[in-house]
Every structure is written in structure tokens, then in C-alpha cells.
Nucleic acid binder design. Sequence first.
RNA 1: GGGCGGAUAGCUCAGUUGGAAGAGCGCUGCCCUUACAAGGCAGAGGUCACAGGUUCGAUCCCUGUUCCGCCUACCA
Length: 916
Amino acid sequence: MTTPQLDKTYDPKTVESRWYKSWTERGYFHASTTHPGRPYSIVIPPPNVTGSLHVGHALNHSLQDILIRWRRMQGRNTLWLPGTDHAGIATQNVVEKQLMAEGSSRESLGRERFIERVWQWKATSGNTIVNQQKQLGESCDWDRLRFTMDEGLSKAVVEVFVRLFEDALIYRGERLINWCPRCLTALSDIEVEHEDIKGKLYSIEYALEQDPSTKLTVATTRPETMLGDTAVAVHPEDPRYNRFIGQRVRLPLTNRTIPIVGDAILVDREFGTGAVKITPAHDFNDFEAGERHSLNRIRILDMHANILNESELRLATKVEPEIAIALAGLPVQKARLRIEQLLSDHGALAKIEPHKMALGKCYRCKTVVEPYLSIQWFVKIKPLAEPAIKAVENGRIRIIPESWTNNYMGWMRDIKDWCISRQIWWGHQIPAWYCEPCNGGFLRSKHDNRPLIGLDANPIVAKSRPEKCPQCGGINLVQDPDVLDTWFSSGLWPFSTLGWPEQTPELKTYYPTSTLVTGLDILFFWVARMIMLGLKFMGDVPFRDVYIHALVRDAEGQKMSKSKGNVIDPLHVMDQFGTDALRFTLASMASPGRDIKLAEERIEGYRNFANKIWNAARFGLMYLEGPRAAKPPAERSFPDRWILSRLNHTIEIVTSELEAYRFDRASSVLYQFIWHEYCDWYLELIKPALQDPSHPDGPGTRQTLVETLETTMRLLHPFMPFITEEIWQTIPHQGDSIVIQAYPAPDRSRQASEAEQLFTLLEQTISLVRTGRVLLNYPPGQQIQFYVLHDDPSRQSQLRHLQPYVASLSRGTAELTEPTPSSATKLLRLVTEGLSVGIVVSGEVDLKKALDRIVKQQNEQEKEIGRLNGKLGNQEFVAKAPPEVIADHHSRLRSLRNDQAMLASSERQLRTLLGV
RNA sequence: GGGCGGAUAGCUCAGUUGGAAGAGCGCUGCCCUUACAAGGCAGAGGUCACAGGUUCGAUCCCUGUUCCGCCUACCA
């Protein structure tokens, strides 16, 4: 038999690509509906097709791969369905930027050619992330790769839209929506990010029409919108103002008067002046107040968030001509300053105070969003939300960690209608058509030539373009130019990817999926919508468990971002430390409810772990020659019984932690077992048995060595797929690949509590001998002589049995007979358990000398500490020295004190030993 | 404004029916011992944020305070 050779250090690069190729070629990741196992399925949160793998993906995907590989090994019928998201606005922005660099633009290309261009882009660059996922070792069923704009998925989108429309759950309406003036599209409420800023609160005086000497002072953070005011509101029970209700005020800078209305909902008497201007076209509250009081909506901003041009502005607001000239076309920010000046010039500005406020920004381009009055499509959400709340309440869906359940509930109970139309080109175009003649023809947008379809137009919603108008039979049908929110299609992901609306075997087998693994940031965007739409269209929840993991931040806890330059690139890390190291790091840090602060040193640490495993395998292979005897565990040697018992324990814990989604604890148990039990103790304990060809334990131990290593590789495989496969293939094994082997299951016959107890005694003893060795400064390589005693006679006989192990692990010789303490023999006593270890001090070790050295060292440190204390106590020095010098002194002082404490403890022990 | 989470070793974090404070990294000392120096052994280091309360006993349970995150919200 020839022993296979492994290199001294583990080189991930050569190993990883080789095995991944082999796995996919042999189709291990492909799911079959005819597989006999109980289904276990996960759909991947589809990354943006524009994306490349960042560390957040790496975490998300590593955890899913651990679950999938684990369940696959358990014999389940596993499917991990991969795919990408067309990411409407994000993708459109990417391609638009490209066009801009070429001196072209979306508008000059036109809609059709632009969309072609995006598809072209997708064909060339859209696979980047998929290839990176493979590098991470993800065991996805790549044969089932889906894209949200695939034919099948688009069919599902249309089906859902039409059915929701038929159920009157989709409607078209003119509403105030969040508008991004850069992307030129509507956004849903959750696509707006809020940021606290320091703004100003302006108090403006509006004069009463009938009595101009009486002023009503209103407070606002947005004075520029005052031109669009159509009323002023006061609280109906406010004695300061309620007598004015029904009267009118003159709107400064204009030739308009507006009514004073009473509104208890809008007005908080305590805030500001107690009077509020109402601008229904530019503020969400005011919009609703406008509805209540049947007020006009005067729009003063265009789609770019600039003030209207002069003639439009004059027409809409009746503003003074010179004011119109001064303001026309200005961006809001500039308009605000301008208005401030104008109001002040006209004596209408009472005061300006600083004021904290939240500013809404577009989640894609960070542009400040504007409330904007426009016609959009909405999903009536309450009827969908109710079953989705129940599903979590009654436990059909479990959110892990549970603490997020409240968040989910709160949001779902308070949910608002979902604006689903977007004024962009890349996405699923809304399946609604309008007969142009029946609607009297449409104007076209000057900006991008889209038809401007009024609210009174009658949409024909259908799965495909209608042949002709059902009303007039005409064929001049215009499709609604808007596309659907990206999250509309991803909301169908768990069933659209399985073939819905067709009743496919996949749908039957894998829906509902088992677990959804996702970050918190898309709980509302995505998870909530999947639950609502899954319940509506499949009649069942889309998944049983939702595991929510944390955000990955940098070592300082900052959000990683390209502009900050603190991004850890997983590809770079994989290249440097190996994929397994990265995966294990992420798993080990996935504690629930806490963000992950990732530093490269951590990954380096687990790279070392991989190397440790590698060398343990090398060690095993070195000593494999010779017979192996597969005796029952109970008949094996003490170290064998012990390690098998520990292995069994580890299997139990890893399995139960995985069931609880505690990836961190599962990793830590594996780490602990492999490094500190298997390597540090077991391999050391069995060296004598392996190195002596005639040792009676040889055959049994060789068997245990292989058995334990092989089982451990299977246990670890979901976490570190590459190194485990490489090692597993090299050691004796049965089967083609570790990927499809059974996951280790606990086995009671391996439990050996007597061996574990014995081990504890052994560990204590060896630890004592080693401590004594260091304390006495025994010369390296020199054998140490010792004897061990125990007050308890039964323990004493156990110790007799352990003597050879103690001797071997502490490079010493053991006295088996009762020692006769001579002047050269000293005793260290362990207080607990009555255990004592005696060390025979040989001539070359001079205890007095050791003590002298310690005392000398201590004195020098004492002086150094004194010096530093003096310096730091010196006010002049502290005042003059740069902070880093002071900090350095402090840290030096701290470390000196640590050393001091350590030396003192050594000194104490030595003095006891010497009896001085 | 409301809600949630966190505060434990120098750093990052574990720590569930309350019962003698743990890991990794870093640090100190010794050691290139035949698997591994990406290693081994030994060690130092803690008022478990603060103040009360319950208890024989609190890092853990309760109340309050401070600081830090996150989510959410229309206070103009």
C-alpha cells in the first residue's frame, strides 16, 4: 500500500476549481422531482443582474449553501434555485451611464432600441455574479437558473396583474406619490430612505383679506411651496384662531386669496404658530387635507423638481409677474432661498428658526425625492395583508430570530397601498391598453415621447395585446407606457420560478419552500410581498422559516461602501485565504440580532484552521500503513473511546445548532472539536500506539483515526466544502464524492462517559506537569521526572493506568512506585480533587537561580513603572506631549503592570516550592 | 415621535429553566519536539455600562438612567 502524499500547506486554489467542476459535471446539485427524499427547497434572493458578489451576498449565500448541503447529505430531496433580478431602476441607470459615456442617451435611442441595448448588456455582463457564486462553492441547481424577465416569469407577472385587476385589487389613480426627479419615476413608500437633517422652520405672515392689519402666521419648512397654497388651516377649537375660519387671507407675492379652514387632523395646536399652510400638490398631509376640504391642487414644480416656467407659473398660481420671472425654472433648493429673500423684501417673513427634519431620498440614486402629483397604478394592499399577518400569527411562517416578528406585524398592520407603476423603460410593461380614438387621442411627453394618458381613459387589462378595441373595434391600441416595480416580479419568485401559472411537478414538489434566508433590509420590500402574493395565488405560504441574518459591516462597524473605501471584496479574500476560510468565518460570525463586524484577520485565522485540518489529515496518512481492526467502540483503547465519545457529542450539537439556525455555535463546536480535541489531544495521545509497530493498540487506533477523520470531514463539509472533499478523497472512503454521502448521525454506542471522566483527570495531570516544567524553567528537550498522587484510592488506580499518557505528553518519565520525597523533590498541589503532582528536580535546574531571575526582572519593571508613573503624573509633560505619545505611555504602563502581575504569581509559586 | 436591539478581557463576540466568568484574535514568556511556526506549551488580563429592586444567591429577572446602533413615522 502506498501512502498518498499531501503538501505541507493547504493550497486552496488548485483544489477549489477542480472539485467544483467535478461536482457540476456529475450533476450533484440538480434536483429531481422523483427523488425519494422529503423535499427541502430554498429559493435564492435573486441578486441584481448588474451586481457583483459583495460580502453581504457571500454571507447570505454561504448560509444557504450550508443548509442545502447539510440537508442534501441527510438524504432530503433538495433544491436550491438560483437566479437574478432585472432590478429595473438600477439596471436602467447602469446602461444609461454607459450611453452617456458614449455621448448617447436613452432618449435619443428610443424605447425599443434602449431595451435591446439592456438585453445586450445582460448577455455580456449579466453572468458576472453567477460565476462568482460558483467560486463561492454554491451548490445551486444551475439548470434551473431563472431571471425575473424570463418568458415564464413574465407570464406569471402578467397573470398576477390581470387577476389582481379583475379582483379590483389593482387600480389606477391620481395620487401624490414619491417621485425621484433624477430617475424620473415614481417610487413606493419603502423605496424612500430617510435621513435626519438640520433644516429651517420659516414663519410667514398671511394678511386677512378683510382686515390686512391682522396677520395669520403660518410655520413651514418649505416656503417655496407657498405659491401652491390653497388654504390655511387652524384648529377648530383653538380660541386664538377659530373665529377666522371661513374668512380668507391674501397669499403673499400673488394676487390670490385663500380660505381659512378648520382641521383638527392636520393641525397640532402646540406646534409652530398653530396655523398651517395647505399645499395639496406638494405634501402628503396637505393632500389629504385638500381632499377633506375639496381644495384645488396647484402644482408649482415640474418632473425635474424645478419651478414651472414663467407662463405656467403665472397661470397656475397668479403670482406677480416680477416674482414669476425671478423664480421660473429654479431648482427647489435655489427657489427656497429666493423665496426667503422675496418674502423678507415684502415684509412677510416673521422669523426663521433651526429645525430638525427628515429628508427623503431615492434608494437608488440618493436624490431628494419630491411628493409629486401624478397618475399611477396601485395595489390595494389591506385585503392581501390580512392573511399575511395571520400566517405569521398562527405560526405557519416562523421568523427567526423571533424578535423581528413584531417589526413585521407593525409594518403589515399599518401598510399603505403599493404604488407599482414606474416611469422607466426596463421592466415588465403594464399589460393595459387604451384605444386612442375612443379616448380622443393622447398627447406625448416632450421628454421621452410617452403617451400621456388621462385618468378618465379606460384601460383594457389583458394577458396579451387585444386584437381590437372591444368598444369601437378599432386597432389603434396604445399600451400603458409604465413598467412594474421590480419588487412586483420578485414578489412572485417562490412560485414563478417553479413554473407557475402552469401546474408543474416542480411546483407540486417544492412549494412551499422550506427556508428563506435573507437580510433585514429587504424584509418589507420582498419577504412581506412574497407572503402576500404567495397566499393569494398559491393558497399557501411561500416558505415555512424566514431566517434573517445581520448586515456585514467593516471592522469599525461602518457600513461598507465603495466611496469610503472600506469594502472587503470576497473575491479577493477567497483568492488570498481560500473560499472555505471565508465561508467558515461568515458562518462563525452569524450570531442572531447583531451586525457582523468583519476584519480580514478573522478570515486569516480560519485560513489557519483549514491548514490545521490539512495537516491533521497528513498526519493520519503518514501512519495509516498497517492492519486496522474495527472493534466495537467499547473495546478500543482509552484515547479511541474518548475521541469517539467527543465526536458523537459534536455531531449532536452541530446538528441541533443547525436545526436552530445557529451557524455561529455550530461552527464554534466544530472548531473546538477539530483543533482542541482531535488535534491537540487525540493525535498526541495516539502517537505511541502509531509509532511502535508492535503496539497492541495499533490496529484499533488506526481504525479509529481514519473513522474519526472521515466522519469529521462529512460533518464539516457543508461549511468547508472544498478542503473536506479533497481530504475525504485522499483517505480511505466509500463512494464517489463527499457531497452525496450521509451526514453523520449520533450513535449511542460511541458515548463513553467513563473515558471522558478519565480524560479530565489526565488533562489536569498533564497540565500540572507542564506548568511545573515552565515554572522551574526546565531546559528544553530535557526529560522531566514526576510522580502523581491522588487522595482518592480509586482515582489513584486510574492514574496508574494513565501514567504512560502523561509521560508521553509531557516528555517525562513517570514513577509508578510511591515516591519518597527527598530534599530535591518538591510538590505542587492542585486544590481540587485532591490531585498532586510531584516533580523531581534534577541537578541542572536551579530553583534559586530561577527565583533570582524573576526577582531581578521584577525590580527592573518596577523602576520602569515608576518612571512612567512620574512622567504621566507630570502636568507639564502631559500638557505638552502629543496625544499619541501619552496614549503610548499609557499602553506601555498597562502592559508592564500585566507583566508585573504575572511575575508576582510565578514568584509566589516558586517561593512556596522552595519554602522561603 | 414610536418601536426594537446592544453595552461582558486591549479588539470582535459567546454565555436560557439565576448557582464558582468563556472563545477567537491580540499581548507576554519558553520552544523550529518527525502533521502543522499558518505551529506547540505556559501565562497575564474582567466592578459583566450605571443606580435601585426581587432572591439565600443576579451577567442573567424587574424598574429607572446614560451611551451606541437599527427600523419606523405626515408634526407643518
